[in-house]
Design a protein around this nucleic acid. Structure first.
Lengths: 215, 215, 215, 215
DNA sequence: TATGAATGAGCATTCATTCAT
DNA sequence: AATGAATGAATGCTCATTCAT
């Protein structure tokens, strides 16, 4: 069926795939810029594709959003994994590790903010968090595993809860801040305080002194 | 406050006020039970009021939701104030104070969960957080003031940031948990970990030992 | 609430009712002239009414059609009752009675043909015959009662079956003829043969001779 | 019939023919199981054929349905012919002949019910009965001829009308019963009354007595 | 003031059909 | 000959809002 060396897609497969990508891109664009104007017709229009084509590839509006969520969270997850792997290689001090991770997570969240906000709100609105739940669980589990493997006695860690809480705390802080004080996201104090929150939770025994110096 | 000096409302004002209350009550009921069926027509119907009357008292759907948000947050704020005042009277140990407060806040959030989720999601979806922002700011400022007045050297506190971060972290944790693991809300570990998060942030110097005993 | 002498409807009730009638009239017009173009939007348009108004009065397309069926069958029923009552007064000879009734039913069916065809086909297509069934049952029951009260020993009559079979046979003959040989509907032979079918079933003992003379 | 003289179809003609058959089979399946889901796309899908191919063989949806009608009615016709021929060989008593035929026709109609209903409703809905008309005419003509050849003086028969009326009466009774009282189709009384209707029409001179004994 | 009839833009979705590959 | 991507008119329906009574 396919050429041996290059598993190139057929022309029509290419066309299909590119239509799909165009639709997803259009949906993402509308979702981040004008979220309450999101409608299948508008997605199709903005994608320069007929509404019929849209429904050829997606069974409905929700399916588009689901795919977007899936890609979004998987993207975040792999970024997080890469960052953790890298940091863990370079840093053995748990405190520095947390700092690095916090820095990374803040940057990541800021980058993805609009999207996360829109998707999150869409599914909360819909009352269907199943997908989010499943993907969030995945993220939480993987981070938990990584953490477990690098565990030092100093790191406070209850496998059932710690990452779960931190995950939602960070999401809440970032989304909340972005909604109410977007300017603060780029304030160095934002990162400093987030680090403090994380360290305070994960390394509860560390003295205040250390922290003051960091800030 | 004003009851002594202000003349009583006229009969028609009373009627107006009761219409307003009926509308708001109906809106709240729909919002918590069937949020995506929220529509002005339905609110009017459920309130036993004509759609025309609804528009006599509120310039539009958003205005109803705004009033709901306002009342909701003001309700939360005054509950928080009362709780803090009371706790501060009875407790001087900052650690115990935090614990008490955490316990209270978890109960409060659980009680208000559906409403908070619905309102939050509605406004996030709308992209208009102005109202939330203003009211959240108020809450944050008042808590900040209270905290300031009870400050002990042990309490980590950067007036610009601390309450702000904690506020959003808690909201994020509670909303996130309610959406993805509602069962965990009533797990004692939930409160324990939330207390840990708060203490770790506010009382960073405390030793791990203490905490272990608490748990 | 209402004036004592004239239970006149209020202006707004009048307006409502006339909108409803307009919608039904438009639906009936489309149904008989251009049945596969029947759509809620077209009904509204042809009725000179906004689509919103249509949905204010009818929960959906089916409801409009149901009301049409109801009115249609009730109209037929009362016409049939009137005719039977009248004939029964004037005629005691069962044979003449059947003839009169057959004549009447043929005229009635011819008059209502387009409508019956359209409604019938619509609901068959929908697979929902519940309404038709209920109303047909009513018609059948009432005719059965009348027949029972005028019963002579000569009339073949099994209450469970006779009217039921005749009812559907006549409907089938009339609809079938109208679809395939509309010209035959006005042929005197059509009536003659239908009378024969009915007599043969209801008065099986009558000799052929009689019939020949009638024709 | 033609197999000896006609050259065999080419391979591609074979393939074409089998594609056509597959499409028709799929259409028939959908039509009987899920009639309002009938769509060209679905037919193609269920047939395992591309929508493009479907349009290669049929100019449109209606053409598929027409072919189905044609085959369906031709099938019924030949079954009826076979039954009549057989009965006529074995029975000379017109009364018994009618009984046998009635029995056969009831079984046949019950067997074909779903299909007949679906096709009938589809074309009535469409307002285009041309095809049905032509084929029904054929059926009627052939039955008329057969009847004519077996005619006895006892059988009431006006060549223009008798079979035509009976044909539509039976169709009406069977379709109507199936729609509103499907349970009655298998009730022995159903057949008995249908026989009565037919005999009463075709053999009007027969005495009631005879019939009572039959029942 | 209160009512509720009326509006119509907008939405999610289906489906017969065309045509480039 | 076969494929299936693409089309877009059409459909049933919702809902915020206006305005005559």
């Amino acid at each position: 069926m396919k050429k041996l060396l290059k598993p190139r897609k057929s022309a029509s497969q290419d066309r299909s795939q590119s239509t799909i990508e165009t639709i997803l891109a259009a949906a993402a664009r509308i979702l981040t810029n004008d979220p309450d104007r999101l409608s299948t017709n508008r997605i199709a229009e903005r994608a320069g594709v007929s509404i019929g084509s849209l429904y050829q590839y997606f069974p409905g509006k929700e399916a588009i959003l689901s795919e977007l969520v899936k890609r979004f969270i998987e993207g975040e997850l792999s970024a997080i994994e890469r960052s953790l792997a890298e940091s863990a290689e370079q840093e053995s001090d748990p405190e520095r590790l947390i700092e690095k991770f916090a820095e990374f997570i803040v940057q990541l969240k800021i980058k993805n903010l609009k999207m996360e906000r829109a998707l999150f709100s869409y599914f909360v609105h819909l009352g269907d968090m199943e997908l989010f739940r499943k993907l969030d669980d995945q993220v939480i589990n993987r981070i938990t595993l990584i953490l477990e493997s690098r565990r030092t006695p100093e790191i406070h860690y209850d496998p059932e809860w710690t990452v779960f809480l931190l995950f939602h705390a960070i999401r809440g802080v970032v989304i909340g801040t972005s909604l109410q004080r977007p300017d603060r996201l780029s304030d160095p104090a934002f990162k400093r305080e987030l680090v403090m929150l994380m360290k305070g939770y994960l390394l509860p025994g560390k003295s205040r002194l250390t922290r003051s110096l960091e800030a």
